[in-house]
Nucleic acid binder design. Sequence first.
DNA 1: AGATTGATAAGG
DNA 2: CTTATCAATCTT
Length: 173
Amino acid sequence: MQYSDNMRIIDVDFFTRDGQTLAQSLIGKYICRNIDGTIHRYRITETECYIGTEDTACHAHKGRTARTDIMWAEGGVCYVYLCYGIHNMLNFVSGTEGTPQAVLIRGVEGYKGPGKLTKALSIDRSFNGENLLESDRIWLEDGESLPYTATPRIGINYAEEKDRNALWRFVVR
DNA sequence: AGATTGATAAGG
DNA sequence: CTTATCAATCTT
């Protein structure tokens, strides 16, 4: 294998925790991407979590559709979708099977903004459903923990107030 | 603050 | 089929 197995996160229990916990755990971890045999590592600096059908900001709250189906899967797979017709968004599904939730990767070191980072990492919708524990083109590696703060999420003005105010965005100080 | 952009989902 | 709605981003 071309990656270092000792650093790779291959513990399914890491991903099956609830989204709030996973989102915070992901800060400081590395997204690893194999592009034509070259391995790139990017440290995660900003995440948001979207939790279940009760969260009106979460895609799952409107019910299960072809696009959002993957959110019901067991944690550890990617959910990639297109937003505003332009931007691919990278999410990691969290929780156990049957609990729709995911963590949006909003930023990595060197790239600010969820659309920019997927462009930089050449991530498109072919990554939807990709398993982070088994894939040879994208995976996670452990990293030092970083100090972060919790804030409300971005770009969800359509959601109910209780969800707009939830401190479910985590960003490195 | 405004323009842009096209997949997605809901409605006729 | 048509329409409204966006987990953004760039340019004024």
